[in-house]
Amino acid sequence: MTKLEAYGPPGNLDDFDGFGRKAWNAFISNTVDTAVKGPDPNEVLHDSPRPQFYNLTSADTAGDAIRAAISWTAFPRIIKITSSSDVQRWERADASRDVQDEYCEWSVVRDNTNTITQVTFTCEGPEYWEVLAETNPQKVIELYRHHISPDVRPEDLFSPTGRYQPRNKWNDSTSHGAMHLVQRNNTLGAEIELAAAATIRRVVNGTELTTEQELIACGKYGAPERNSDPHIGAGVNALARQRADITLADPVGLYFDDLSTDGWETPDGSDPKSYWTYLRGDTEHRVRAAYRVPPEKGFSVGDITIAGRPIRFGSQIADFITIKLTGIACRLGRSTAEPQTSCVEFLPADMPEEAFTAEAFSAYGNFLDPRPAVSSRSSRVA
Results as ranks from 00 to 15, higher is better:
49 P>I: 01
195 A>T: 15
305 T>R: 15
168 N>Q: 06
270 S>R: 14
104 C>Q: 00
240 A>S: 15
322 T>G: 02
40 D>V: 06
223 A>I: 13
254 L>F: 10
295 P>H: 12
185 N>W: 09
364 Y>Q: 05
105 E>H: 00
16 F>P: 00
252 V>M: 03
148 I>F: 04
253 G>K: 01
171 N>S: 04
180 H>Y: 02
251 P>L: 01
116 I>M: 00
371 R>C: 03
292 R>K: 15
111 D>T: 01
193 E>G: 15
18 G>W: 03
304 I>M: 07
262 D>K: 11
162 G>I: 11
221 Y>F: 15
297 K>H: 11
94 D>R: 03
366 N>A: 14
38 G>K: 03
84 S>W: 05
31 T>W: 05
30 N>R: 09
204 V>T: 08
347 L>R: 14
69 A>F: 08
10 P>W: 02
24 W>L: 00
206 G>I: 00
265 E>P: 04
54 Y>I: 02
214 E>P: 07
169 K>T: 12
316 Q>V: 01
155 E>A: 13
234 A>Q: 13
224 P>K: 03
249 A>E: 15
319 D>G: 06
151 D>V: 08
97 R>W: 04
113 T>C: 01
268 D>T: 15
269 G>P: 12
219 G>D: 11
204 V>I: 15
45 L>C: 05
157 L>S: 05
277 T>V: 13
362 S>G: 06
349 A>N: 10
318 A>E: 05
162 G>A: 07
170 W>C: 01
338 E>D: 07
112 N>H: 12
10 P>Y: 02
57 T>E: 07
30 N>P: 03
355 A>D: 08
227 N>F: 15
254 L>N: 10
209 L>Q: 09
342 S>C: 06
95 A>H: 13
39 P>S: 04
14 D>M: 01
63 G>A: 13
57 T>V: 05
131 V>N: 09
139 K>L: 11
238 A>L: 11
64 D>V: 03
303 D>W: 00
361 F>H: 11
27 F>P: 05
189 G>M: 04
264 W>H: 04
77 R>W: 06
361 F>L: 07
68 A>T: 14
167 R>L: 00
330 C>S: 14
235 G>H: 06
158 F>R: 03
111 D>H: 06
50 R>Q: 14
248 L>A: 11
363 A>S: 14
21 R>P: 05
175 S>D: 09
361 F>I: 15
124 E>D: 09
207 T>A: 08
255 Y>T: 00
306 I>Q: 09
101 D>R: 10
379 S>D: 10
19 F>R: 12
253 G>L: 00
59 A>E: 14
175 S>F: 11
380 R>T: 08
293 V>A: 00
45 L>N: 10
320 F>G: 03
380 R>F: 15
